[in-house]
Every structure is written in structure tokens, then in C-alpha cells.
Amino acid sequence: MFSKISRYRALDDVVTTDADGRRLSSRALRVAAVATGQFTHTIADADRLDQLATRYYQQPRNWWRICDANPEILSPQELLGAEPVVTYRCDISPGAGIPNLLRALTEMVGVSRAVLDGEATVVVTFNRLNLTMPDLAATMLAHGFTASAAKQIGRTGKQIVIPPNITG
């Protein structure tokens, strides 16, 4: 049973047979429409998909249209930079032992990548559910490096497509 405003309500029922011979009823797949955006929106720190849908479509439940128009982004949270996995850029004091520092960072639970960008900038990708930037800074300090204020590399300031408001 679907709400009368559900985008799945009008889809046909489909009956299939599984490998064990059972007949199963479901809805046909909703094929994402090709959305050609008429304009873009620059992501701000406080943006939420429901608020963007309200702003552009006067309906917060239409957030999925924005997701459909940006298929290169895998999740709604990633679209707005709220994914648990984040990347930070941090300048460190120059010094020997950078390979050891990168190895120590990479071995931390939750870190998926730690690389040197230039001579004294470390870029670390980690799961913020496991770690915080102060945890990483403490590891840097323990290896003899001081770190500047880290800056998150995310979607803030980047553009996403806002498709036209076509009902259907």
C-alpha cells in the first residue's frame, strides 16, 4: 500500500517466480528519469535535501528529484557532504619521518587513506564515526609533527543539478 502522493503508487504490479518456484508479487522498478537540470545550486554547510526541495519545488518530499538529477553521487548524505567518511587536509611541520607518520595514520581503525600532498600537507580520509580530527592530530604530535587547523574537503561550495519542477 502506497500513499496517494507516492511516486511508486502508479507503478504496475509484477508477478515473478523465484528459484524455488514460489510466485512473488512486487511493484515494477521505478526507472529514474533522465533529468536535465535547468540550473544548479551551490551547496552550503547547512543545506538539507528536504529544505532544498521545499525551496525549489514547494514540497519537501521531492528531495529524491535532486538525487536522481545527480547520479554520480551515490547517497543523499554524500550529496550534501554529510557522509560518515570524510577527508581532511592538514598542514604539518616539515621533518623526517613522514613515511612513518603516514603508516601510523593508515593503521588507525577508521582511516582508509593518508597521503602526502606537496611537501608538508597531509590528506586523510577517515570514518568520523570511529575517529575525530583531534585523534589524528594527537597521532601526528606523537610522531613529532605539529598540525595546523585541518580543513574538511567536501561538497560545500560545489554545485549540484536542480532539475525542472515537472510533475508526473
Rank of each mutant, 00 (worst) to 15 (best):
S3H: 09
K4T: 08
R7K: 08
Y8I: 04
Y8V: 04
D12F: 01
D12A: 14
D13E: 13
V14H: 00
T17D: 00
A19G: 05
D20T: 12
G21T: 04
R22I: 02
L24Q: 04
R27T: 12
R30Q: 10
V34L: 11
H41Q: 05
A46F: 01
D50W: 03
T54D: 14
R55F: 11
R55I: 02
W63Q: 13
A69S: 08
N70A: 05
E72N: 06
S75K: 03
P76F: 01
Q77I: 02
E78K: 00
E78M: 06
E83T: 00
R89V: 10
S93D: 14
P94K: 06
G95E: 02
A96N: 07
G97N: 07
L102Y: 07
A104W: 00
L105K: 11
G110Y: 00
V111A: 09
S112V: 06
A114P: 11
T121L: 05
F126E: 02
N127Q: 01
L129V: 09
N130M: 12
A137V: 12
A138K: 10
A138G: 06
A142M: 05
H143T: 05
F145Y: 04
A147H: 07
R155L: 11
T156I: 13
T156N: 11
G157Y: 01
I160T: 09
P164E: 15
